[in-house]
Design a protein around this nucleic acid. Structure first.
Lengths: 207, 207
DNA sequence: GTCTATAACCTGATAGAC
DNA sequence: GTCTATCAGGTTATAGAC
């Protein structure tokens, strides 16, 4: 598959390989991806791939590092900010994350799958550590709802935001939605999810 | 990995292989799983695996069929039932699904990953089709909140329930939770999620 | 830096003895 | 039915010419 070079102009060879690797790894995962496919997609020779990156694993590590940064990097600054309200954080988080995922819909499933296969490598992803242990977000959650573990709200917000992208391959074929319709739904969720989160946070069990 | 036979007694050879395949495929996915690992885990020889199942693919197809049934099979009857209220359906769904996922935490990531790699194979998974097109659940959602696409609520309920299991490898290492603590949180969610879903469904945008 | 050719290895599958 | 030994094919990685 992908026998025709996808990147012809203006990119350095190294960048062409990385661009191709991003595509092929994201689509197939580490194990199923073949270096030949990456070389073909990049429009260069297989030997050249090993000349720039010493091995498939090393090439993958670089890509994975990027993807993790993309997936987790933007979150921490929003969550740590002590000058914003809980409500603002939720709105900003959902909006930023949804935008990023619309551009990068296969990212969550890719990252989660590879973490499953090699959990050791991701033992301490610092942004999430930060959010969980030192963030203003968690402090605000604890203050508002001290009786519920803040992880419940964090997992819920993430689940509401991220899960539709994880389930997309399934949903799209089942609900007969094309890309445009799916994107429109995700845009709608930028308003819906914060609304829901606020309601959830206000809802005490016996109210 | 897995060099010592895990199943020694009372299982037929065929069942030993299937049991081993369930474990290895679930942990690694189709592409990364090696038939040698499955044979070793089963405590039998590689040739025997091909004697019982003609190929890796055929063995996998059988396992996948089981897993899909496990993942989707139980849902449809709950959602289609015309004698129960929307509230009851949500509570039953979350409780049943959570119980199943506690016993089978790696199931969602496995299923989603393999659907991504081979979307064609799962084009029409009948239980979900049923839920989306003919279920009492969707009808009740439409009646209660006609202005919101029912898929929003379905994705949200699924996300709240399933996402914590998808993110588990990540969360466990990050939040320093052991298996028991994680299970306890999931048990808590059996009460929290229905509560939240009801609040969400009642919350009109300008109320 | 880039290529062709090939080495070295691994994996799924089979042949054939028991 | 179960095993050992091996084949056939594919994959990563490298050698060596240009």
């Amino acid at each position: 598959m992908g026998k025709s070079p996808a990147f012809e102009k203006e990119l350095s060879t190294e960048e062409k390989i990385k661009a191709a690797a991003r595509i092929v790894f994201a689509k197939k995962g580490f194990a199923a991806a073949r270096t030949r496919d990456i070389a073909d997609t990049a429009g260069i020779n297989l030997a050249l791939l090993n000349y720039y990156f010493r091995s498939k694993q090393k090439l993958f590590d670089g890509i994975m590092r990027e993807k993790l940064q993309e997936f987790f990097g933007k979150v921490a600054p929003i969550m740590i900010d002590t000058t914003t309200t809980l409500e603002t954080k939720i709105e900003t988080f959902v909006a930023h994350y949804t935008d990023m995922l619309i551009k990068n819909p296969e990212l969550p499933l890719f990252v989660m799958s590879e973490i499953r296969t090699h959990p050791q490598h991701f033992a301490q992803i610092s942004p999430i550590h930060q959010i969980l242990n030192e963030s203003s977000f968690v402090a605000q959650l604890k203050e508002k709802r001290p009786e519920v573990h803040p992880l419940h709200f964090l997992m819920s917000m993430l689940g509401l935001t991220v899960f539709p992208f994880i389930a997309m391959p399934m949903m799209k074929s089942i609900a007969s939605l094309d890309d445009e319709a799916y994107t429109r739904m995700m845009e709608e969720r930028k308003k819906l999810i914060p609304l829901w989160m606020h309601t959830i946070l206000d809802k005490k069990p016996n109210t």
